[in-house]
């Protein structure tokens, strides 16, 4: 123990250093005219930075990490002009606070389910932004949004805005690609792999048919030329999404139990 009061002085030294740092750091920034600089908010948040850390929010923004999650949205496939969602119901089941409601489309004639949601609601007043829906969706049809500027003052019906229906939830996949580039990239790869696999399967089938038509003699050769078809299906990182049968969700889940 030193002299009484040295402890306090030491502490005051720290605050003084912080005070000086706030100016020193900015001076360095201003004086350093050499070439490219990190944008200010980033520079201020880097682990090496000293001095001010403030991000002047409406003018400056911190870049959001790709994984960032706020409320979910539905992805609309702009290429196929269709919802990606097949209304399999997995997201509604994994949602911990049960904030997702889905009405499945039915074929008006056969009454068989059609892989498309008729209605889709997310009650954002219950949503806990956990990200399970996006994580467990086998079709990459629901993703977590980055738009956090959702606060509003009520005009009339206070909560009308917070229960979002399908129209409000749907956003194009170009938007998804812009906020989740890595994820999107993976999706494209998956899709390409799947296309290739489908093509290969189709080709194999065509050949087999042709062989059959030719009378059996060419069949072994055709099979030998395309041996990889089933193996390729097994090795693609994502198994082919089960085409919405009656309950693909349960089947998949049940299987994974064991």
């Amino acid at each position: 123990m030193g002299l009484l009061g040295t402890g306090i002085l030491k502490g005051l030294g720290v605050t003084l250093r912080h005070f000086i740092d706030t100016y020193a750091e900015d001076l360095k920034y201003i004086l350093n005219k050499s070439g490219v600089q990190q944008p200010r908010p980033l520079r201020r948040q880097s682990p090496k930075a000293r001095g001010l850390v403030t991000v002047e929010y409406p003018r400056e923004r911190l870049p959001l990490p790709e994984n960032f999650r706020y409320v979910p949205f539905l992805v609309y496939d702009t290429e196929k002009q269709d919802d990606k969602c097949t209304s399999c119901g997995i997201c509604a089941k994994v949602c911990p606070p049960q904030c997702i409601w889905i009405v499945r489309t039915e074929d008006p004639v056969t009454k068989r389910p059609v892989p498309q949601p008729k209605e889709f609601y997310i009650d954002t007043t219950i949503c806990m932004n956990c990200g399970y829906c996006a994580e467990f969706c086998p079709f990459d049809a629901i993703k977590m949004d980055h738009d956090y500027e959702l606060s509003y003052y009520p005009h009339q019906e206070p909560h009308a805005r917070l229960v979002q229906d399908k129209a409000e939830l749907t956003k194009p996949d170009t938007y998804h690609a812009s906020i989740h580039p890595t994820d999107w990239h993976r999706e494209l790869e998956d899709r390409a792999a799947e296309e290739a696999k489908k093509k290969a399967a189709a080709e194999a089938k065509a050949k087999a048919d042709a062989a059959k038509a030719a009378g059996g003699s060419a069949a072994p050769g055709a099979a030998g030329a395309k041996p990889a078809t089933p193996a390729a299906a097994a090795t693609t990182s994502k198994p082919a999404p089960p085409k919405a049968e009656d309950k693909p969700a349960d089947a998949a889940g049940e299987a994974s139990d064991q």
Binding site: S87, G89, A92, K93, V94, C95, P96, Q98, I100, W101, I102, V103, R104, P113, E119, Y121, D123, V163, D165
Partner: peptide, 15 residues
């Protein structure tokens, strides 16, 4: 127990 029946496939939203 969850998941609740009312969410899917006939999940008409209800508060």
């Amino acid at each position: 127990t969850k998941p609740f029946e009312s969410r899917w496939p006939g999940g008409h939203h209800q508060l």
